[in-house]
Amino acid sequence: MVGDGVEIRVLGPVEVMVGGRPASLGGQRAHQVLAALLMEAGRAVSADELIDAVWDENPPASART
């Protein structure tokens, strides 16, 4: 549990539940960013690390935005 009524599930597909209901995370990239942040809970994660988590070796020029 993250907070009152917020649950993040990472075994299987990444899901966020709020008050027992699924919350929309947006697209696949948002799921990948959340998963990368959860893997490093309690530690600051750099933009470069997040870019690597989402795009591996071929990030687009717009990756930082």
Rank of each mutant, 00 (worst) to 15 (best):
V2F: 09
R9T: 04
G42S: 05
L11C: 05
L37F: 06
M1D: 05
R64I: 14
V45N: 09
L34Y: 07
R43I: 08
I8Y: 10
P60N: 10
Q28D: 14
P60C: 09
V2R: 14
V18T: 08
A63H: 11
T65W: 14
A63I: 10
L34I: 02
L25T: 02
R29E: 00
G26Q: 02
L38P: 02
E15M: 10
G26K: 01
L38S: 04
S62W: 13
W55S: 02
Q28T: 10
L50N: 08
V14H: 03
Q28K: 11
P13S: 11
E49C: 07
G3H: 10
M17I: 03
A30C: 03
W55C: 06
S46M: 12
D48F: 06
E15T: 02
V2E: 02
V54K: 05
E40D: 05
G42H: 06
R64Y: 15
A23G: 13
A44M: 11
M1Q: 11
W55G: 00
L25C: 12
A35G: 00
V33R: 04
T65L: 15
V10W: 00
M1G: 13
A63P: 05
A23R: 15
T65I: 14
Q32P: 01
E57D: 13
E15V: 07
V10C: 01
G19W: 07
W55E: 01
L25V: 04
E40V: 02
S62P: 07
M39V: 06
P59K: 09
A23M: 15
L34R: 10
S46V: 06
D52K: 14
P59H: 12
P22V: 11
G12D: 09
V6G: 10
L37R: 14
A41I: 04
A35T: 04
S46G: 14
G42W: 03
P60I: 11
P13I: 00
V16M: 11
I51S: 08
E7T: 08
R29G: 04
A61N: 10
R64V: 15
A30M: 00
M39T: 07
I8E: 02
V16H: 00
A53E: 00
G20H: 05
E40K: 13
E15A: 09
V45Q: 08
G19A: 12
A30Y: 00
L25E: 09
M17C: 07
L25A: 11
V14R: 04
D52L: 09
G27H: 09
G5M: 08
A61P: 02
E57Y: 09
V33Y: 00
V2T: 12
M17D: 01
M39C: 04
R29H: 05
Q28R: 14
L38H: 07
A36Q: 02
S46F: 13
L38E: 03
T65Y: 15
A35P: 02
V6P: 01
D56H: 12
P60R: 11
G20K: 07
E15K: 03
P59I: 14
V2D: 04
V45Y: 09
A61F: 12
Q32M: 07
V2Y: 06
V33K: 02
G26V: 01
S24M: 13
G19M: 08
E7G: 02
S46E: 13
M1C: 08
R64Q: 15
G27I: 01
G27S: 11
P22T: 10
V6L: 15
A44D: 12
L34P: 00
E40N: 12
R29W: 01
M17S: 08
G20A: 08
